[in-house]
Structures are given as C-alpha cells and as structure tokens.
Design a protein around this nucleic acid. Structure first.
Lengths: 346, 346
DNA sequence: CTGAAAGCGCTAACAC
DNA sequence: GTGTTAGCGCTTTCAG
C-alpha cells in the first residue's frame, strides 16, 4: 500500500482530495480552513505518515531555523558544557544546530567554515571558540559584512560585534579577595597559557589585587602553565624555587591546582597551613581533592544558553548589517566556592 | 555594485553569459566544459562571491551529506570525547552534522527527534546515547523500517542493527586480571548505576574474574554508585563495613575512585598497601591523584570516528532497509594504564 | 560542448 | 474557504 518513498505534500493533497495549498495551510495551522477539511487532511497525514520537509520550507522562506555552532576543544569540560547549554536552549527555541568542530584553536582560514555554514542557510552563528593568540584577527574584516548575525563567545569585547563571556577578571578578583581576606599576603600565581585571553584576565586580576592591597607584584611570582595537570606540577616547582616564602597560590584552573596539591603533599607540606590554594573552574573532582579545593565556579551552560538567546534575538528582530539591536558585550559573573584548601585555621 | 542578496547560480549565468547548467557543470567539476568557458565562469563566481546552496542541492539530489547526531550527557567527559571524534571524522568525510541533545538519558518519546532529523533529510543517524534503563525498547519497532541507516553507540549488541561500543566487559576483565596478578584476592567492586549497560558489563567482569580464579563472589562485596565522586565516597564506606578484610577494589569510574582514595586517606589507610584501587576511564586528573590511579583507558574519540565511518559506509553502499551491508556489532578494546594505586610492593 | 525544459517539496500572492 | 500560478536555487534529462 505505502509507496517506498516518503510521502510529499502532493500525495497528501491527492489522497485527501484537496490542493497542496490547503494541506500547507493545515500544516502551518492557519485558521482559514474548514474544520471538516482540516480533519480529513490531518487524518490523511497521519495515515500516510507524512512529514513536511524543512529543507524545502527553508528554501522558499529563506529561513532555516538553524544555527551554526563552531566549537573547538570539545574534549575539555568547559567547551562541552557550553555546547550542552547551547543544545538545550536551541531545542527550546525551536532551532536546529549545525555543528562544526575546529581541529585547533588557532584556525587561520575561517572562510571554508563560513561557506559550509552559509551554504546550508544558517540563520545565525555562534562562534564558541575561546580567544587564543591571533584567532580573532579576521573578525574585523569579515564579520561586519556578513549576512547573518554572529555571537562570539569567550573573548575580549570589541566594537560592533556581539560577545558573551564569563567575567574572568572578576573571577580572579574574587579568588584573590578571598585569599587576602583570609590573611594571606604572599600570594603566587600559576597562569594558563598567556596567549589565551582568559588566562591573561586571570593574571591581571592577580596583579591588580596585589597592587590594590599595597603588596609587591613580582614577575617571578607568576609562572605560566598550559592548563594540564602536568604543567601545574612543573609550575609549582618553579614557584617554590622563585618565591620560597609564598604562603598561598592562585592557580588558573583546577586541573593544575590538583597537581599543585599533589606536589606540595610530596614535599611534605600541609595545605592550607603552609600553602593555601585556590583554583578555577570547579570541576566535579575538586570537592574530593585532599584537601577539597576552593575554586571559582563558572556556569558555562548558562553562557551557551545566553549566546543562543542573543543570536535568536538578533535574528528575529530583523537583523540587517549591524542595524537593529546594538551589538552587546555580555558578561556572566562566576561564583566563589570555598573549601578547605584556602581556610586559615583560627 | 553588488546586490544585497546573496548571488545565485542565475546571477552567475547571466553575468558570465552562459546558461545555469553550464555554471552547474563548472561547480560540479564536470569535464565537458570548454576550458575557456570554465575560466570565465570561475572568474565570475569569485567576483560575485557566489556560493552554491547546499539546501537546493540536497532537495533535488535527495541527498544532504548531513548526519544526524543524537547525544545526551554532554557535560560529562565521555560523551563529549565521543562527539569530538564524530565531528572530526565527519569533517574529514565531507559530511555536516545536525546535533540534537537529549535532556535525559531515558527519553521515552523518540518520534519527534526522528521527525526533526528526517525533515532535514539527514542521510544517516548516529545515536550516541548510552543504553540506560529501557531507553532501547523502541529500537525493534522503529528502526527496522526507517529510511536511513542508524548506528547505535554504547549498547548491548542486538540483531539487525549496527552498534559500536567500547568493550566494557573486556576492560573490567583487564582491571581484574591486573589485580589478581598483583596478588590481591579479596577484591570488592563499586559499580555504576545498575540500569546502565556499561555498569552491568563491568560488574559481570568483576564477578566472572573472581569466579574463574576460584574465589568467592558475594553480593555484599559489590556496592552501587551513581558515577559521581560523592557516591563513591558513600559506597566505599559501605564496602568497608560489609567487607572488612577487602584488600583491593575495582571502581567503575575514576571520579568515584578519587573519592575512594580520599576516604581511605581520611581513615588513615595506605594505598595500595592496605587497599589497592583500580578505576575506569583515565580522566586527565587520575595521573595526579595521591597515589596516581591505575585505570582502564577507553578511546571514545576513536569510537565516534568508527561510528561515522560505519554510518557513511552504510549510506554509500546504497543502504535500503537492512539489505546491503549486514548490520555489524563493533567493539573497541580499552587498555590498562598501570599506576601506583594498584602496585603491590616487593 | 552547451542550452531548454522540467521538477525536487514547499509556500507567497493572488484569484475565485 | 479553497485553488491556481509562480518560483526558492539547484540538477537532471534530453536536444542540439
């Protein structure tokens, strides 16, 4: 009975004895169809298992209800949390997602990426790749004359484009404020790779907090890591050598902080008595380090969600060039999670 | 000069003074175009910044070069690693990805998911959701008469469908073999949630390994966790009570194993002297636990890659119903990573 | 080698 | 209320 191919609107129309236009009206829930006709068509639709083609619809409406998402570093927890926020928010808003993963952070040639996205008529783009090195250089030239809105995640706010980021500087300040409040005064820093915007923000927070507290800031008190636990171990070793009377360390992520704890332990040092440690990220494991790690929590899912909402807002307000909604730079505030690794005993 | 709208094949044809077909031939790199004409058209294309519409092409060719990917639990490292493998493999094969994230593992009503995917004419589907509870019940009824091939990840192999999974049973056996070889004989187990297929496989491996070694298997020697570190802490507490002379424990994931180490440490126990620990997953942190954790490494990126390759194989071999390539059940072997947490001192 | 006509599945605009 | 016509941007015949 059923043909092998998927039924089209034509099949439905023929079987129900109406024109395709009427079927179209029913599908799109237009009011101007006789209740009786509507019933008949709905029955036919479910009998045939008919399903409208979003492709054909996109073609004629010049609107795909699809967002392009560009990510990198999905193996890390941060980017995947963000993506998770994006998927659920898009679902909720009735948008589909076209996903592209970059093999590296510093992809130089973005043209093919955009082409792939545009050729599938995405209505908007979420550039969920953190700012690293020169990987935002192309933004000025390209993005201003694109036909669809783009929202950039995790980057230094810029004129004329929309960005959504965690406030890494604020997070760093919260970590430092906490340590200072606990009475620590000789605070070192292990940073992320300095070509990362996020890493630089956290370093700046460390520096400014010390300065504002009237404490000396020395280059030798800050060592660069690469986010990996191994690099954290190396960094703390250096720091012990360069800053022997350090009493606390602000570490730019939890993975490196774990290695710091581990290395301190191996040297027979007690945390937090001899060295207080504050991390960044609040990975699920950090509550179970020995001692549990004080850290800065960032809600990356919320960031993804916000990015989707912004993009859709730009789309639906009839975005054209950079007319309607002014480009915004949104920042989300992280929160401080206090655990034992930073608590000065009475 | 440039019109506001994106140029179409018609514009190119008009400007180049040829018919749209000829432009089409050039785009698709057909040989039967005069070199001179081809040059002129290529020039026009780049002058106009023309870009073919994949949408229109998909519509007429009934082929979208797009894969639907359904995931769940992206906030966890496993699923996102898998997705990362999928994105890079798809990119390489020239396929786009339509991403759907499920809000939970046990989504009952999969019909809307498939509808959304089909309405966008995906050529194949990768169901990257682990088997949990009853969430594969629908497979029999539906999948057999779908119009596109599906590959299911992380599930018990089943007749007539294609699956790709890590060999969790093998992984469990490797963990157990290692502990037995080190001389441990009273080995407990902390499992994942028993409604997860992966958790059951690991339990079965624990059980079978003990049995085959001629050791007693008691229900009280296995406690169920829920993958979270917190649950691991609870579970090891129970296990200490129910199995006081336990000398080793195989923990179903690294996060729970971390809490085990932490709890043992708090009770003043030494690892591995008084309790050997083996985990599962090899998260980046586990090399930096105190002591570093012996664990089972699974290459989830490879799994994602394999799933893409299988799906495309089915698509391109002219899949119809379940005719051409027989459904396969592929399994990937994990590897053992030995660290200090399980090494019996001489 | 190149072009004309038809149509993928759908909807906008207009008739009746 | 409902049908007709046209066309989204492309490719597939089939002529020449």
């Amino acid at each position: 009975m059923n043909s092998n191919k998927r039924p089209t609107i034509k099949h439905v129309a023929k079987v129900a004895g109406v024109s395709t236009q009427t079927v179209s009206r029913v599908i799109n829930e237009r009011p101007d169809v006789a209740p009786e006709t509507r019933e008949r068509i709905l029955t036919t639709i479910s009998e045939l298992g008919y399903q409208p083609s979003a492709l054909a619809r996109s073609l004629i409406q010049q609107r795909s209800y699809t967002l392009g998402v560009v990510t990198a570093g999905l193996i890390h927890i941060g980017p995947s949390r963000t993506l998770n926020g994006i998927t659920s928010a898009a679902e909720e808003a009735g948008y589909s997602l076209l996903l592209k993963g970059l093999p590296r952070y510093d992809v130089e040639d973005v043209v093919p990426i955009f082409q792939a996205l545009f050729s599938r008529h995405v209505d908007g783009i979420i550039w969920a790749v953190p700012e690293v090195g020169e990987n935002r250089n192309w933004v000025d030239n390209r993005s201003l004359n694109l036909k669809v809105p783009i929202v950039y995640l995790t980057m230094e706010p810029k004129q004329n484009i929309s960005t959504v980021s965690m406030d890494n500087y604020l997070g760093g300040r919260m970590a430092m404020a906490h340590l200072l409040e606990q009475g620590y005064r000789r605070i070192g820093h292990i940073s992320g790779p300095m070509d990362w915007w996020e890493a630089r923000q956290r370093v700046a927070a460390w520096r400014d907090a010390l300065k504002e507290a009237g404490l000396a800031v020395e280059d030798a008190h800050c060592v660069e890591g690469n986010w990996s636990p191994a690099s954290g171990g190396l960094a703390i070793g250096k720091l012990f050598a360069q800053y022997p009377d350090m009493d606390a360390v602000f570490v730019a992520n939890d993975q490196m902080a774990l290695a710091v704890i581990q290395e301190a332990c191996e040297r027979g040092m007690h945390i937090p008595e001899e060295l207080a440690v504050v991390g960044f990220d609040n990975i699920p494991e950090s509550a179970f380090f020995s001692p549990p790690l004080t850290t800065i929590q960032q809600d990356q899912q919320a960031m993804g969600k916000l990015a989707v909402e912004e993009t859709i807002l730009m789309i639906e307000s009839g975005w054209e060039g950079l007319v309607s909604p002014e480009p915004k730079s949104l920042k989300l505030a992280p929160t401080l999670v206090v655990r034992q690794s930073s608590l000065r005993k009475e």
